[in-house]
C-alpha cells in the first residue's frame, strides 16, 4: 500500500518483450497492407507516406524500447505505455485535422467544378436563344440544356 502512495520511488514501467513482438508483427503487417492498397490503386502514394512513417515508427519503437523510455522520461511520464498512447493519440489528432483540411480543399474544388458546369450550360442556352429564336425567348430554351451532345 505504501508503495502506491510513494509513487515516485516506483520503478519505471517498461514494455514487455511480448508487447514488443506483437507491435513489430503488427507494424510489418500494417506496412504490407499499405503497399497492397497502393498496388491496387486504392491509395495514392502521397497519402501513403504518413502511414509508412507511422508503421516504421512502430517498428523502431518495438526494436529499441530504450528510445521510448527516453521520450517517456522527457515527458515526465513514468509508464512507457502511457507515453506511447499519448504520442499515438496526438499523431492521430494531427492526422484527422490534416484530413479535414484536405476535405475542405476538395469540397471547394468540387463546388467550383459544379459551378463551371452550370455556367457553361447556361451560356450555351443563352447563345442558342440569341441565335435561333431572336425575340421570342419564352419559347426557346426548353430543351436547350438537355441536347448538349
Amino acid at each position: 500500500m505504501s508503495n502506491l502512495l510513494l509513487g515516485a520511488q516506483e520503478p519505471t514501467v517498461q514494455l514487455t518483450s511480448q508487447t514488443r513482438i506483437i507491435a513489430a508483427v503488427l507494424a510489418v503487417v500494417f506496412m504490407l497492407m499499405i503497399l497492397e492498397l497502393i498496388r491496387q490503386d486504392r491509395l495514392q502514394e502521397r497519402y501513403s507516406i504518413v502511414w509508412f512513417v507511422a508503421g516504421l515508427s512502430m517498428l523502431v519503437g518495438a526494436a529499441f524500447p530504450g528510445l521510448l523510455s527516453v521520450i517517456a522520461d522527457a515527458l515526465g511520464v513514468r509508464d512507457t505505455n502511457v507515453a506511447l498512447f499519448s504520442m499515438v493519440l496526438l499523431f492521430l489528432l494531427a492526422l484527422a485535422l490534416n484530413f479535414s483540411v484536405i476535405m475542405s480543399r476538395q469540397a471547394a474544388q468540387i463546388t467550383r467544378l459544379a459551378q463551371e458546369r452550370a455556367i457553361e450550360a447556361a451560356r450555351k442556352q443563352a447563345a442558342q436563344e440569341s441565335n435561333g429564336k431572336r425575340g421570342s425567348s419564352t419559347v426557346a430554351g426548353d430543351t436547350a440544356q438537355r441536347d448538349e451532345s
Binding site: 459544379a114 459551378q115 452550370a118 455556367i119 442556352q125 436563344e129 436547350a144 440544356q145
Partner: peptide
C-alpha cells in the same frame, strides 16, 4: 426555362452560398 429564364443547374445541392457565387460568376464572365 419555360418561363423564359436562363438556367444554370448545379449537378447537386451545394448550398445557398455556392448558388449565389454561381450567379456572381456568371455575371462577371
Amino acid at each position: 426555362r419555360a418561363a423564359g429564364a436562363l438556367v444554370a443547374s448545379l449537378p447537386f445541392n451545394q448550398g445557398l452560398g455556392a448558388a449565389l457565387q454561381t450567379g456572381y460568376l456568371y455575371a462577371l464572365r
